[in-house]
Design a protein around this nucleic acid. Structure first.
Length: 267
DNA sequence: GCCATATGGAAAG
DNA sequence: TTTCCCTATGGCA
């Protein structure tokens, strides 16, 4: 259940363990079996992350993986254990193994298709991309900024947690149309995403609460949530805002749950 | 055991 | 806008 920070972290781990080595590729579950055969035994030359997409180069073919909501990697040292459950793709090298479960996408692409797939992905804060294309989309869009942040063609790698939290940190209502976001606000959001997502990649969790607010929330923190980090509004529906005592709101936007504080982020 | 839920996105209508 | 896909997990009975 990953946002871009997780994907970049996994790319680094896969790179460390497998790059430059001969890899046995198979599909214990079977759904990737015929593709796996085509690259089985080849050398893994590159591992790239673009937003939430992962690409692995095996000669003239790329494996394209998108974890979606359910996908998971399990990466380990030494001999691979007996397959358990649904393993779509398995990599085994001299140094360890990796199991891929439940991805939305696991496919083979040739060089051109890979390039086209990358081209569809917007600027990625973790790669410190040039945000200009994102600004151009936001500036002339009447869609709500809360939706634009989740649009991977606009902001690559941003997911539901970063979307909610970055808008809170800048006191912007998720319902405000993109065209009503000023250049100054956009720049502040982008710079903040660069910082937050780099941190999230390094730490393996998403913390968005500013240090000066930490003492205030320690006293009344609800039970630890699964995502594990300290946040202002994500999944805190009905609880008091850490800063203004208004109740955190939740609504559906584009089929995903949106969280915000009506006090700190007025429309 | 059963049900709801999950950091996502494409396809169908 | 809704439906569907993919898998695991936590809360509950």
């Amino acid at each position: 259940m990953p946002e871009g920070n997780v994907i970049h972290n996994q790319a680094r781990r896969l790179r460390t363990r497998f790059r430059g080595k001969q890899i046995a590729v198979d599909s214990p579950q079977g759904r990737f079996a015929s593709d796996a055969e085509r690259i089985d035994g080849r050398t893994l030359e590159k591992v790239e992350a673009h937003g939430k997409h992962l690409f692995m180069k095996f000669g003239d073919l790329w494996v394209h993986v998108h974890l979606g909501l359910f996908g998971k990697w399990r990466i380990g040292k030494g001999e691979a254990p007996e397959p358990r459950g649904q393993i779509r793709m398995r990599l085994r090298g001299a140094d360890g193994y990796a199991e891929l479960r439940g991805p939305t996408v696991c496919e083979l692409l040739d060089e051109d298709s890979k390039k086209a797939a990358v081209a569809r992905i917007g600027p990625d804060p973790i790669k410190k991309s040039d945000p200009t294309p994102a600004w151009e989309r936001v500036e002339r869009s009447s869609a709500p900024i809360g939706g634009l942040l989740m649009d991977q063609r606009v902001f690559a790698g941003v997911g539901n947690i970063y979307r909610a939290e970055v808008l809170f940190r800048h006191n912007i209502s998720p319902y405000r149309p993109g065209k009503r976001v000023s250049r100054g606000e956009f720049d502040a959001i982008w710079d903040d995403l660069v910082l937050l997502m780099a941190q999230g990649t390094k730490k393996g969790r998403i913390d968005t609460v500013r240090p000066e607010h930490l003492p205030e929330i320690m006293g009344r923190r609800a039970r630890k949530d699964r995502h594990g980090g300290e946040v202002y509004v994500y999944r805190r529906t009905g609880q008091p805002c850490h800063l203004c005592e208004a109740e955190v709101q939740m609504a559906e936007m584009g089929g995903r749950k949106l969280y915000w504080c009506p006090g700190c982020q007025p429309e």
